[in-house]
Design a binder for these strands. Sequence first.
DNA 1: TTCACGTGTCAGAACTTTCTTACACATGAA
DNA 2: TTCATGTGTAAGAAAGTTCTGACACGTGAA
Lengths: 117, 117
Amino acid sequence: MTPRRPTGDELVEMLAALANPLRLRIVAQLAVVGRDYVSHLAREIGISRPLLHMHLQRLEAAGLIVGSLELSEDGKAMKFFEVADFDLHLSAATLAEAVATLTPPDSDKGPSHKERS
Amino acid sequence: MTPRRPTGDELVEMLAALANPLRLRIVAQLAVVGRDYVSHLAREIGISRPLLHMHLQRLEAAGLIVGSLELSEDGKAMKFFEVADFDLHLSAATLAEAVATLTPPDSDKGPSHKERS
DNA sequence: TTCACGTGTCAGAACTTTCTTACACATGAA
DNA sequence: TTCATGTGTAAGAAAGTTCTGACACGTGAA
């Protein structure tokens, strides 16, 4: 089944995660090959491992990919990633809906909790 | 009719334009009220006019809204904006397709290299 | 021990985005 | 003229993103 519709904030995070050519490539690559581990994927795409690590984190935080740390036969820890099941529909109407669940614009002038000491 | 499917680069630009709560609000507001001019929209949303101007530019460049400069009855130049007709479908499969039309990663050196698994 | 492979993280440079404040120009009405 | 309305742009601060080049840790094999 398809996952539930994201909140406005979640949608922004997903869009931000996808709004980058490198991350789009990463998702596409995982979509094609099914799953892969970090070092190999970095070689495949042609970027440094720390850089890929950063992008994978962003994609995973947005819920677009999922990772799992596994042990290979020769005892190495390997982190595999695959694409999550997502399906976003973006039109003026759906965006208007999502905006309704967006965190209100920063108004820390108002009386809220204990902000500072 | 629905507009043609964007290239990878265009898609990235559209996603980047939407990946911002303020711009999402702008699109939503225009979707609801139909059309509006810059100064009024700024008051409506509660941000400065120069700031709105910048966001509108970004949205228009991405093809998500369209603007037209008109003359009011009392002779003032007024720039009206409305949402464009867009309808994006984002899933692992459609993203993989879009990536195929993405500008190749910056390779001002050696030519492409056969990748191996 | 050393090497080849895997994992992760940190610091800083370079760049981009976001936002404010200030300026310039136009019009019609008082 | 001055005020209130509309348009646009530019400079610079602040914050965020992207990327490289170390570093630290693990394993199994030579």
